[in-house]
Every structure is written in C-alpha cells, then in structure tokens.
Write a protein that binds this DNA or RNA. Sequence first.
DNA 1: AAACGAAATGTTATCGATATCTTGATACCG
DNA 2: CGGTATCAAGATATCGATAACATTTCGTTT
Lengths: 319, 319
Amino acid sequence: MADLAQLAGVSKITVSRALGDSPLVNPETRERIQALAREHGYKLNISARNLRLRRSHTVAVIVEMKPSTDRTMFDPYPLVLLGGISQELTAAGYSVLLTTRQGATAAAVQAADGLILLGQGVHQDAVRRFDKLRLPMVVWGARSQSDAHVVVGSDNRLGGALVARHFIALGRRRPVFIGNPSHPEIFERLSGFVDALAVHGIKPLLMRRDDFTLDSGMDAVRSLHARKVGFDAIFACNDLLAMGAIRATLDLGRSVPADVSVVGYDDMPLGASFLPPLSSVRQDWQEGGMLLARKVLALIEGESANSESLAVSLIVRST
Amino acid sequence: MADLAQLAGVSKITVSRALGDSPLVNPETRERIQALAREHGYKLNISARNLRLRRSHTVAVIVEMKPSTDRTMFDPYPLVLLGGISQELTAAGYSVLLTTRQGATAAAVQAADGLILLGQGVHQDAVRRFDKLRLPMVVWGARSQSDAHVVVGSDNRLGGALVARHFIALGRRRPVFIGNPSHPEIFERLSGFVDALAVHGIKPLLMRRDDFTLDSGMDAVRSLHARKVGFDAIFACNDLLAMGAIRATLDLGRSVPADVSVVGYDDMPLGASFLPPLSSVRQDWQEGGMLLARKVLALIEGESANSESLAVSLIVRST
DNA sequence: AAACGAAATGTTATCGATATCTTGATACCG
DNA sequence: CGGTATCAAGATATCGATAACATTTCGTTT
C-alpha cells in the first residue's frame, strides 16, 4: 500500500480510504488510486486488516463430514445448507471456515467472529463443547427448553403433525414411527406426531432404529411382522428408512399405499423416482442456511437474535 | 501476550517461544508459562500471527454447492472429499476456507495459502479462472494434456476400461455409454471404455445426456428403444443414470442382467439396495481428499507435486 | 583466573493495514 | 475582511505476534 501511495503521490492512508470507497477522499483521487491498484494487481493484505480491525470476517461452520449411517446430517442436504450459509455470508463480506468437530480446536477457529454448528449431536453434546469458545453461536437443529443459544431449524413438530393429520385423513388407526428419537430433531418429529394423533385418541408405536439406512427401514418392518404387530401407516424419520420400509412391506405381500401408508422425511430427489413415488416432508435447506447466516451476523453485530423454525410441507405422492 | 509476560515476569518473546514449544526456552519456564496461559484462558491472536508470518495457514476449497442436475460434484461425495481434505489439512495445522465459485473473489480467498478446486467444470472453464489468483492450486478432476497445474483424480480411464472388460467377459457386443463427455472426467471414462472395447473390435454407442438424474437415464433407454437401436450392455457415468436405465429397461420387458448388463459409477450406498443390486465403479473419495490436501501442502512448502490418479475398482453385484 | 562458549532471555524492528487526531486549503457568511 | 464551515489529505499510533540481533549468565576449558 505504501508503494501504491508513492505511485499516486499521496499518503498510505489516502490509498486505504480510496480503496475503501471512503467519502473522505476526492472522487477523482479515488478513481485514480483505484485504477492504479487494478493496473498493478494490488491486493489488500487481509491479515493486516484483520489485525487492525480485530475482526476476521470469518464464520466457522462445524459439520460432521464422515459418512456414517447413524446421522441425519448427511446426503446432499448439508451441502445445500452450506450453500445457503455461504451465499449469505459472502454477500456480507464474510467467509466460511469449514471444520469438523475434531478440528474445531484448530487455531483458525478461535479467530472466527462467529460459529455455526450443524447438528446438535445426540443429547446436545456438541453444543456444550462449543459454547466454551464464547463466540456468537447459532445452531441448526431443534430447540430445547434449556438452551441459551440461538437455534434455527425446520419445524419438526409441525412435520410430525402434518404426517399425523394425513394419516388420520386417510383413516389410518395403527401408525408406526421409525427412527432414533435421541436426536433432538427426530424427537421433535416424533413428539409432533404423537401429539397430533393423541387428539384422535391414537397412540403410535415407536420402532427405534439408530441407522438412517434403507436396510434399517426394511429391518424395522420385518421385525414388526415377526412380532405379529399390526400396522396400517408408517412415518419414517428420513426417506431412506421410508423406502426400506416400503420395500419390506411389499415383500411381505402387502400393498403400499392400499394397505399401508408411508411418509418419509427430507423429500430427497430420488424419492420422487422411487416406485411407488414416495410421499415425504420437505424442508427448505437453502433458506435454513441463509437464516443461520443472518442470525450469526446479527449476533456478531451485537444485535440480538431469536431462535426460529422454518415451516415444512408435506409432499403427497403415491405412498 | 504482553500481560502474560508480565504475569510470568519474562518478556513477550519468551512467552511466544514458550507457547510455540521452542527449544530456546528453559523447559521449566516453558511449563510455567503454558500453565499460566491455560489458567487465564489465553488465546493467540491468529491475525497478528498471520500478518507476521505472512501465512494464513488456510487453504481455500472451491466447490459448487447449488444442487443441480447437470453436475457430477453432488450427492454425499463432495462431502466425503471435503472430509478427507479437512482431516489432512487440520493435521498439518491448516484450515479449510469453503467457497463457491461465485464467492471465490472474496477477500479471504486471496489470503489463502493455497487453493483446491473441486471439479474442473465443463471445458476447464473454472480452472482458468482461478489460475489467475497465482496461488498454489490443486484440482480434482481429470488430467488434460495442456494444463500446468496439478490434478488429482481417480483413474477414470481405468474405470471405463474395467467396465469394458467386464462386458467383454460377459460376451456383450453392443454396449452403450450414457453421460455427458463435456466434463473432462466423464470424457476419460468414455475414452477408457472406448479404447478397451476397440481391442475387441467393438465400438460403443454414445447416448449423450446432460443431466445426471434417474429420469435422464430412463429417458436415454426409452430413446434407444424408440429409435429401435439394439443394445446388450449399458455403462452409465453415474449411478443415478444407471438406475434409471435399469428401470426403463425393465419397463420395456427386457431383463437385467440376462438381456442387458448395466454398470454405474460412484457406487453410491443406495446402489447396493437397489433392485436389482447395482454393479458400479467405486472411487475412494476420502483418500482422494487426503491426497489433494497433501499436494497443496507440498506446493505451499515450495516442493513440487505431480498429478496423480487413484485406482478405482469395479464392484460387481447383480446387474 | 582469563577466556570462551553454550544456554536463556531481552531489545528492537517489522508485518500491512486503519483509527484518531491534525493540518492545510478553499468556500461562505455577515 | 475576519472568522468559521467544509473538504481533502497527512502524521502518528496501534493492532499482537515473531525474526533477527544483542545481551546476560553461567559453566567449562586451558
């Protein structure tokens, strides 16, 4: 910047102002300096600026990246969530620092201005860990009574309720829920489902499955059959489980949706092409990411931010 | 750090050395200072360190995050790739700065010590753009004759050849390739496929499809049928296309694999659960990510790095 | 006992930007 | 015409760490 100042015949500070579009410099001078900067391929030293401004203009996003069968945060979705986050942060002049839970102790993370945590983990364990960094933090997941931090997520209770009402409307009386309610989000889905059914005096059966896979879904239905449990509707807490459940149901010689209604969650693209096309609850991941970003930015600016739930919608196809 | 120095009764530089585990300080002094730092929750100011060291210890990873049907870099895989990258970089004390192609002009990106580009884009367009940043860069994709930069990717030619040999072994004579060879990686798969078939005097038919979706795969087969083109084997350049092709083939009353053999690419988890279980070419994304990271790190250290291809394997299931 | 050398620590300068406080020049007012 | 706004630009200090060079301390050598 000093060199550029000499070239332009002004002082460093004027260059700094000109490049920052400050109204304190003469528009002509500003133009001239900016042209000179472009011409010489000048690039601001971000580290110096960060040091001086005491801001890194960086938000750390903590995500689990190892594929694993017992997680919701997998599949293309987190990537879309990341896309939303990235879009919004970039627009505000911030960058995304991506970390795993393990790597979150890395130096650069403590330099971040804020934190976005994707997935609370079973029993909020992840949340507690990162609370200690004392950074503005926003979490993707489900609200819990006890937390002090901001949570953004889709309205899982509503998702569960929508499915329940759908089943009721279809006259189903013996619904089953498949999934792992240890995840706060899944728990909310289950609880919305249970409550909405309770209104009609129906109590669903919980088939707890830890893996979010197709095989796990098949296994759940086979196990129901083996135990001679009757059921006429299945709410699976993700689409893979739902597809597995459908396949196993068909294998057992029962019809979907004539004998058994099935609804999944996430509305993954493949679901629409499944045979039969899968009904599912859709969440808007992109919007969720953008909302997460806006909330951290607000916190960073010292403003307050509230937890928020995004509406979900039930996509009814053929199951 | 000055405060800490005063507390310990030493100078700033001694604190700096102690925290950096420098052998220049007395082990006892080092212990004492480190204990003091922990006790007071001292955190290094990364921006200051970056400024002084002229290193940000950050690698920018450029990835496309918007879901789109015409891309290979989608589905869970880039996330696994990112996982590999992240793991390796974190171990080396580096962080991952995640950006989209649009956001890659952002300030923080130019502060990065290196660049990893996931996906070359059609006709290398993305590569050329980022070459201009003059940063150590490593690209995930396919090697081309003309590029000066380091490319890491799986051995797509080998993938194509494996499938070709598999078809030959099965006695297939009229193979079809489905995909979009404008992507360098897909082009390599096709070219490996074509070359290996040529040895046996067979020339495959190219069904160009731009979307990497199940519907697109179905459409391809229907179109073949409508044009009364005979075929007894299909190599689809990803698993979704393959599944679509299988479904359409079955719909037309032909058997898979009795009448038509089908092989996909990527070996996505769902493929194993597909009916019939899908044969596919598997690439090791995690390892690929780690390799990418190691290469940029080498370049950053001023060492040289060569382009490299990772072996792939053909997983034969029932198609 | 003087001289030397290694170990431990300190002094100073520096990385590159920006905030704050000043200064200088010009315009405008009654 | 003196005095005050207004605008443009400069001087200096500072953000927090570390590299290079300087110094002190002590033990060892001859």
